[in-house]
Design a protein around this nucleic acid. Structure first.
Length: 472
RNA sequence: GGUGCCAUAGCCAAGUGGUAAGGCAAAGGUCUGCAACACCUCUAUCACCAGUUCAAAUCUGGUUGGCACCUCCA
């Protein structure tokens, strides 16, 4: 499997530190509001990376944090007149609900920044001891950026360029810093803010130190994959590297994966433009599986545009897979009725042929998780299925195909075999009545019933194998 | 100002040296009482210019047009 590594700017063969195991850390959201669809992109794509690795037989230790202490959380808490923890706990719960609806697997561990303060104090202490950090007069602790020789290796910048482009910082009044590039590890509390005691001052951690510490605690000094949105490359991930490698004396992460941004109507999502959507907003109109399908229809490193039109397109595309799966179920029931259970020799040959879609899928995923191509493989399989199955097929054959579609979809976290709903008897009766009307060629009555059911959200389809229905 | 990315059919989107996957939409057809589903058919020489090569969407240089980061925004 090849992975594009931001560190080397090229695709590299993935070789885990420990054979058969993957240590993966994905930067999670700051929980001050409902997550937006931009937050959902890394969750979905890296969950898919994880699922594929598990499919390949790796044991994945997947860690994704919640940043539950932050200026924005405090601001929200003050606005509502509640404790910061009330805000963070509320939105962690909401975020988990959204993740579940997106079929994002819970991480092996979801650490909270506020539960890891001890580790942060330890690491900051180590950095000071080693001369990589210093305490200012008011108790703020800064990282001495220029003390880390390789600073800039992830974002491919050199410190002098950074300084040239950062003139504004020089005049921003942070005159406690030895150097404008230095960043905060620990800062003093302000009135009304949550704080922890430390050797330097009562205060709270800077953002970057959290991830270094949580990664170290749950995955160790060296990890395989560190992932997040591309905006985190600089400064967040650059700073994590500086902290972790200076403190631990080892390479921090071997592979750095970054997803591109999600735009809305070709513009960056922002509240001021009024094009800001939460995952919850989308869930009111669509099954969030549609959002997941949509996100995976492009490569994770390409910017992806979001619009109502594209969601409709995604919905229709996904429905094509669902329809094929439903057809298989119908055909299987049919096969059982007819007593066609065991597959025939020619069916075995067909199944052999269908294996190529698995290969096609894996080839795509092996190439830096190319989900767009992988989904194309699923569509090819769907088309093959629609062409090669009919009422004469055996149950065993149909079942094997169904399993293949389900397995590939499941790697993408796409649920295509939703449990059949039980219709209430009243609706079933109407369907029966319509069939009677049709046999009597009373099409007026038959269409009337169909309209009536459609009004209730039940769409009928008359197929060769009988009447099918689905919710719209 | 610094750094980097992108430009493929109506829309979305793979492909990164050997003569353009897939999906949505549209059109025609088969099936069907009709509709829907499904199937068949049909749709691009890859922003522009120049160059390298037997061969380029794919490499090099340039032009134009988008975008991102450099401000604790995924």
């Amino acid at each position: 499997m090849k992975i594009y590594n931001t560190l080397s700017k090229r695709k590299e063969e993935f070789i885990p530190i420990e054979e058969g195991k993957v240590r993966m850390y994905v930067c999670g959201p700051t929980v001050y509001n409902l997550i937006h669809i931009g937050n959902a992109r890394p969750m979905i794509v890296f969950d898919t990376v994880r699922r594929y690795m598990e499919y390949k037989g790796f044991e994945v230790n997947y860690v994704s944090n919640f940043t539950d202490v932050d200026d924005k959380i405090i601001k929200q808490a003050i606005a509502e007149g509640v404790d910061a923890s009330v805000i963070s706990e509320r939105y962690i719960a909401e975020c988990k609900a959204d993740m579940e609806a997106l079929n994002v697997k819970p991480a092996t561990t979801h650490p909270l920044a506020t539960q890891e303060i001890c580790g942060m104090l330890d690491m900051i202490g180590t950095l000071i001891e080693k001369g990589h950090a210093y305490e200012a007069a008011d108790g703020t602790v800064y990282y001495r950026t220029r003390s880390f020789q390789e600073y800039g290796k992830l974002s491919h910048r050199n410190v002098d360029d950074l300084q040239a482009g950062n003139r504004s910082l020089l005049v921003s009044g942070e005159d406690q810093k030895e150097d404008p590039l230095d960043f905060v590890l620990w800062k003093p509390k302000k009135d009304g803010e949550p704080y922890w005691e430390s050797p330097w001052c009562n205060g709270r951690p800077g953002w970057h130190i959290e991830c270094s510490v949580m990664s170290k605690r749950y995955l160790g000094d060296e990890i395989d994959i560190h992932a997040g949105g591309e905006d985190l490359i600089f400064p967040h991930h650059e700073n994590e590297i500086a902290q972790s490698e200076a403190a631990n004396g080892k390479q921090f992460a071997r592979y750095w994966m970054h997803n591109a941004f999600l735009n809305i109507d070709n513009r960056k999502m922002s509240k001021s433009l009024g094009n800001f959507f939460t995952v919850r907003d989308i869930s009111e109109k669509y099954d969030l599986q549609v959002l997941r399908f949509f996100m995976l229809s492009a490569h994770y490193r390409s910017p992806l545009n979001f619009s109502a039109e594209l969601m409709e397109s995604a919905k229709n595309g996904r429905d094509r897979i669902l329809t094929a799966v439903q057809n298989l179920h119908h055909l299987m029931e049919n096969a059982v009725t007819l007593g066609k259970i065991e597959e025939t020799v020619s069916e075995q040959e067909l199944l052999q042929d269908a294996k190529r879609f698995v290969t096609q899928f894996e080839t795509a995923m092996d190439d830096d998780c190319n989900t767009a191509d992988a989904i194309a493989a699923i569509f090819d399989l769907v088309k093959w299925t629609n062409t090669n199955t009919d009422a004469t097929c055996s149950q065993s054959f149909l079942m094997a195909i169904l399993q293949e579609i389900k397995e590939l979809s499941d790697i993408c976290g796409l649920l295509v075999d939703t449990a059949p709903e039980i219709l209430d008897t009243q609706i079933e009766t109407l369907i029966e009545q319509r069939q009677v009307a049709r046999r009597e060629k009373n099409f007026a009555r038959s269409d009337e019933i169909r309209e009536e059911l459609l009004a209730q959200g039940i769409l009928l389809e008359d197929t060769r194998e009988g009447v099918k229905w689905k919710r719209v």
